[in-house]
Amino acid sequence: MGNETHRHASLLHHLYAGHQSWLLDRLRRRLGNAADAEDLAAETFAHVVAHPDPSTIVEPKAFLTTIAKRLVFHFWRRRDLEQAYLDSIAGLPEPALPSEEERALLMEALLRIDQALAGMPPVAKQAFLYSQLDELTYREIAERLSISAMSVRRYVTQGIARCVAATL
């Protein structure tokens, strides 16, 4: 194993040494916060570490940018969902507040769902969620959203298909 492992490690080391400050600088500009930038830069390189064969990365900057962009997007979306969570629970009476553990489980699940449904128009998401979470009939959903039952059916199909595709 020795040689192969060593080659792998030295490749990774080159990648860090050559691009760490460049990546950090870009992330700082986008996030406006050094600590978050450091976290995301490290997370980006953690993806590189997981890459089966880093020697096939021909354009390191393009490769790192692609990963980092996706992470930045998820980072902001996570922030948004956390903010939305705080807003949503602000009005709840104390006994109904989710515990810390429930909160963590809920946020994990919501992030996965959010990613699966990303790109669906809001009304389509809403129709799917009414069906999936509130178990309303399509006629009830159509009434609430002032759309046709045919549209509801199409949106629910889209939602299920995306959730299934995301777990494949």
Binding site: D80, L81, Q83, A84, S88, I89, L106, L110, D114, Q126
Partner: peptide, 9 residues
């Protein structure tokens, strides 16, 4: 709760 959060813009 979940619907509200997922529809947050």
């Amino acid at each position: 709760l979940a619907r509200h959060i997922l529809l947050y813009r």
